[in-house]
């Protein structure tokens, strides 16, 4: 094979390898920004008619317990918390019930509701008896797990 062709194909192959790598890293990047809520890939979903209103909760963050660090992006669907497999947040906590609590949106606010759990749900220090509004950043305690809403 001529030397020139050899050199060109050699460089071309390495370039092709790196194109694959860069393409993959691009996907990683867009995924990270998408999940962190920094940029929406869906587009337009959140900027419509929301200017000037109070900050809305966009994420549910587990701050303590076995699942600490887990984030769940919030949309209009309620979040079920408990030991049941089909819960949104599945707890493996001896102090949690199968269907422990639900956090659901009402308009722009989120309300936590205890679903008849054995050990109760606490908003900050107060036991939750009926549907109670959850302000941003206030800890909701379920067994050993603590969750917060974040904007």
């Amino acid at each position: 094979m001529p030397e020139l062709v050899l050199q060109l194909t050699r460089a071309g192959f390495l370039a092709l390898l790196w194109i694959f790598v860069l393409f993959a890293l691009r996907v990683v990047r867009s995924d990270i920004y998408g999940a962190a809520g920094l940029r929406s890939l869906v587009g337009g979903g959140r900027s419509t008619g929301r200017g000037g209103r109070g900050r809305a909760a966009r994420q549910l963050l587990v701050t303590a317990g076995a699942l600490a660090g887990t984030r769940i992006s919030l949309d209009s669907r309620p979040i079920l918390i408990g030991r049941a497999d089909d819960s949104t947040l599945v707890l493996d906590d001896d102090y949690a019930s199968t269907r422990h609590a639900r956090i659901a949106p009402q308009g722009d606010d989120w309300y936590v509701e205890d679903l008849g759990s054995t050990n109760g749900t606490y908003l900050d220090r107060a036991k939750v008896t009926g549907p109670t509004r959850v302000p941003l950043g206030v800890p909701v305690r379920i067994g050993k797990t603590v969750i917060e809403l974040r904007s």
Binding site: D31, A35, G45, G49, L74, P105, G107
Partner: peptide, 29 residues
């Protein structure tokens, strides 16, 4: 986790929009 379903609850309190047809990444794959 749903990567880019970060849309806020609908502002007008009407029925929520159908689940966003977000890309599952199979095309990229």
């Amino acid at each position: 986790m749903s990567a880019d379903v970060v849309g806020a609850p609908p502002a007008d309190g009407a029925a929520p929009p159908p689940p966003a047809d977000r890309s599952t990444g199979r095309g990229i794959e």
